[in-house]
C-alpha cells in the first residue's frame, strides 16, 4: 500500500515524492547560480540531484521497466508512453552526467560552464517534461478510472 494511493506500492509513492523533491532541488540550484552567483555550490547541488536520480532509476524504475513484459508485446499507447519516458530519462541522465563531469574536470573554469548554459536549460526542460511523463505513468499504473 502506498502513501497516497491504496493501489500503488510504497516504492512507487516514495519514488514519486523523491522525483518531485529532486526537481525542486534542481530549481534551488538554478536560483543559487542566478541570484547568488555561487557557481560551485550550483554545480555541487546539480551533482547531488543527478546522483539521487540515478539511484532512484536503479532501485525503482529500471526493475519496474524490466518487469513490463506484457506491455511491449503490443506497442499500443501505454507502451509508447513508457518507452518515451525511459528514453527521455536516459537522455536526461546522459546530459546531466556530461554537464557535471565537464564542470568537475575544470571546476576553476566557470566560463566553460557558462558556455554550456543552453545545454543546461535544455536539460532542465527535458527533466521537467520527464517528471510530467513519469507522473502520467504513475496515473496509468495506479490511479483507478
Amino acid at each position: 500500500m502506498g502513501l497516497f494511493n491504496v493501489n500503488a506500492s510504497l516504492y512507487a509513492d516514495l519514488n514519486l515524492v523523491f522525483q518531485i523533491s529532486i526537481l525542486i532541488l534542481l530549481f534551488v540550484g538554478i536560483l543559487i547560480a542566478r541570484r547568488k552567483r555561487k557557481f560551485k555550490r550550483h554545480g555541487a547541488l546539480m551533482g547531488i540531484a543527478l546522483t539521487l536520480n540515478t539511484i532512484s532509476i536503479v532501485i525503482v524504475m529500471l526493475p519496474s521497466f524490466l518487469s513490463f513484459s506484457g506491455l511491449f508485446a503490443d506497442l499500443s499507447t501505454p507502451a509508447a508512453i513508457v518507452i518515451t519516458h525511459a528514453v527521455l530519462g536516459v537522455l536526461v541522465e546522459v546530459l546531466g552526467v556530461w554537464l557535471v563531469a565537464n564542470w568537475l574536470v575544470r571546476s576553476d573554469n566557470i566560463k566553460g560552464c557558462v558556455g554550456k548554459r543552453n545545454l543546461m536549460r535544455a536539460t532542465l526542460l527535458l527533466w521537467s517534461i520527464e517528471l510530467f511523463v513519469g507522473i502520467y505513468v504513475y496515473i496509468m499504473l495506479y490511479v483507478p478510472i
Binding site: Y11, A12, L50, T51, V58, I59, P63, V97
Partner: peptide, 18 residues
C-alpha cells in the same frame, strides 16, 4: 566513485514491483 557505488549499492536492493 559516488555514482558507481550508488548504482552498485542500489542494484542490490530489488523492490518487488511486478
Amino acid at each position: 566513485l559516488i555514482l558507481i557505488l550508488g548504482v552498485a549499492a542500489s542494484s542490490l536492493i530489488r523492490p518487488v514491483l511486478a
